[in-house]
């Protein structure tokens, strides 16, 4: 399993891909530096007014899903596209280990990256007042949920990333602002609800937009476990080309 994990890591870390992903993760911090540089002196900042739109719109609604999906769909997607999955399943390794190795490889790259992206940006705004631990925890949970869904999706269709982006933009982005119930079936909704639930004061901006804290915890857990099992089932039953 360790071998498959290392192999998957190598597949994930293509040169250009890493550069693009790093740039993406650095954007919130760059943005805040730019605002600090250019903002007019007479305005006093309310930190929340700056950081919450960044966390909501840029990180949870953009960087987190895009980075995680790009990595997670590639975990099996590239193997299928290059027709190398066949060699992997021939190895005397259980299917559980294969799925687990792929999932872990995604998490090992995506979790620190997304966490750093959010935490550094938050700290730049106002280090003393930000609940950095809470933020890191919620972001990690969000990454894990997307990673599980899209590891499975990568096994299902070569266009997993495309459908994933449609899901993130249309379902989580557009529909969830119109229909409130969508929040119960949206990873973005869970992530924001976890943030809000753990620290209602700092993330007061999300009040009224998020689902109940327990529902978010259960939802995240169910998504991770269910999609891991689905991926496992798919790998066991599929006709590997």
């Amino acid at each position: 399993m360790a071998e498959i994990f290392r192999l998957s890591l190598r597949q994930i870390l293509g040169r250009w891909r890493v550069l693009v992903i790093l740039l993406l993760a650095a954007l919130p911090s760059l943005l805040i530096l730019l605002i600090k540089l250019l903002s007019e002196a007479q305005f006093t900042f309310a930190d929340d007014d700056i950081i919450n739109p960044i966390i909501d719109g840029m990180i949870v609604g953009g960087i987190l899903p895009i980075v995680t999906m790009a990595l997670a769909t590639a975990a099996f997607g590239n193997e299928l596209e290059d027709k190398t999955l066949y060699y992997l399943v021939l190895k005397p390794v259980s299917r559980v280990s294969i799925v687990l190795a792929k999932l872990l490889a995604t998490l090992v790259v995506a979790v620190p990256l997304v966490m750093a992206s959010g935490v550094v940006a938050s700290a730049l705004v106002g280090a003393e007042t930000r609940p950095l631990g809470t933020l890191a925890l919620a972001l990690a949970a969000g990454v894990a949920a997307y990673a599980a869904i899209f590891t499975f999706a990568g096994l299902l269709t070569p266009r997993a990333l495309a459908y994933g982006l449609v899901y993130v933009l249309v379902w989580e982005g557009l529909l969830s602002t119109i229909v409130s119930g969508v929040g119960y079936l949206s990873v973005r909704g869970y992530t924001l609800a976890l943030l809000h639930g753990m620290d209602e004061e700092s993330f007061a901006a999300f009040t009224g937009r998020v689902i109940e804290f327990p529902a978010a915890i259960v939802g995240t857990g169910v998504v991770i476990v269910a999609f891991f099992l689905l991926a496992l089932y798919r790998l066991r039953t599929m006709d590997v080309p």
Binding site: L31, F43, L161
Partner: peptide, 28 residues
């Protein structure tokens, strides 16, 4: 070289720049 990355790159570029632009021109 991979279709998925081409699509993701374009979409990411457009999705990320929207909130950035909104924040940088935010009214106070």
């Amino acid at each position: 070289e991979r279709r998925a990355y081409a699509a993701a790159f374009v979409i990411a570029a457009f999705v990320i720049t929207t909130p950035m632009s909104a924040l940088l021109s935010m009214e106070w």
